[in-house]
């Protein structure tokens, strides 16, 4: 398979601390790759190494099947990026900020208007960026990353600091990109829900190690929600459910249903009522990212 981004044994050490260790990232063309991990897991460090902003301690980075060390400029010609907080020159207006970058990459001036339009900042093109809200700065950063018509777009926490409507806007924008412009996109985030709504492929890092890398469908299996029942005399209630052919787990206090479809939950409740148990609570227990990580790291050890 041809990968747009492929890292081999990518490692970065800061003194004794191992920020990224042995990372093997594989990103197929046209995917939205969700790069997921808690803060401090090494996401930004990895992205900095992908862009050549930081040298790896060891390992290699190939983008567009080319070695980043040898063909950095040719690679970066086709890469757009937004690393951590949006970068901008505070003394310049939005349009001037893009113009300063445009002079370097040499695309036609009309491209500035185009990208401002894509992120819907055309009305404030002549305003100083200093006075922009966080969301506007973030959108300007995305506009800057689109300036060179990239084939690979790397966005580090693109929805950080945005309000809900801003998040939805950015999300819709990102989802459009592979289809409309044939781009491959990497988005990093520490929020599972964020990645869940945008990504088609997911890579999960924890403590600098890649602990999961597969399609979003595979990922969803890990993050399935649970329906928990609190009932009187839970052990016999659980046995009663099993006796009626329902699949359920029991953990001393609560019953957990393995099939969480609406019908299944309704049936389980009906049976329990019929059998004379008191039902105190029927709750949906959402799995946090931490739980998913725990599950993943557990299975990692088993493999």
């Amino acid at each position: 398979m041809e990968y747009i981004v492929e890292t081999k044994n990518l490692t970065k050490r800061f003194g004794k601390e191992q920020a990224v260790s042995g990372l093997e990232m594989k990103i197929p063309k046209g995917e939205i790759y969700g790069f997921l991990g808690p803060n401090g897991a090494g996401k930004t460090t990895t992205i900095r190494m992908l862009l050549g902003l930081m040298r790896p301690t060891s390992g290699s980075v190939h983008i567009f099947q080319k070695d980043l060390r040898k063909e950095r400029i040719r690679i970066l010609n086709k890469v757009g990026s937004l690393v951590e907080n949006p970068s901008y020159y505070p003394h310049l207006t939005a349009g001037e900020n893009l113009e300063a970058l445009r002079k370097i990459i040499g695309v036609p001036k009309t491209r500035i208007k185009e990208v401002l339009k894509i992120v819907r900042l055309e009305d404030v093109a002549n305003k100083k960026v200093k006075g922009f809200s966080m969301g506007m700065k973030q959108r300007l950063g995305i506009a800057a990353s689109l300036l060179n018509n990239p084939e690979l777009l790397i966005l580090d926490e693109p929805t950080n600091g945005l309000d809900p409507s801003g998040i939805i806007e950015i999300r819709q924008l990102i989802q459009r990109l592979p289809h409309d412009y044939g781009m491959t996109v990497i988005i990093s985030s520490h929020l599972l829900s964020e990645i869940d709504q945008m990504a088609t492929t997911v890579g999960v890092v924890s403590k600098g190690k890649m602990i999961f890398q597969d399609s979003i469908e595979e990922m969803r299996k890990f993050a399935k929600q649970k329906v928990v029942l609190k009932v009187s005399d839970s052990e016999s209630a659980w046995r009663a459910l099993l006796a009626r052919g329902m699949r359920a787990d029991w953990d001393e206090k609560n019953i957990t249903l393995l099939n969480q479809s609406d019908e299944n939950v309704a049936t389980a409740v009906k049976y329990l009522v019929k059998d004379g148990f008191s039902i105190y609570r029927v709750e949906e227990e959402k799995k946090s990212l931490e739980d998913v990580f725990l599950q993943m790291t557990k299975e990692e050890r088993l493999v």
Binding site: L51, L53, V83, N85, S87, Y88, Y89, A144
Partner: peptide, 10 residues
Amino acid sequence: EGGWKQLLAM
């Protein structure tokens, strides 16, 4: 405001 990283990623 992060000018270096934007400039040097070009």
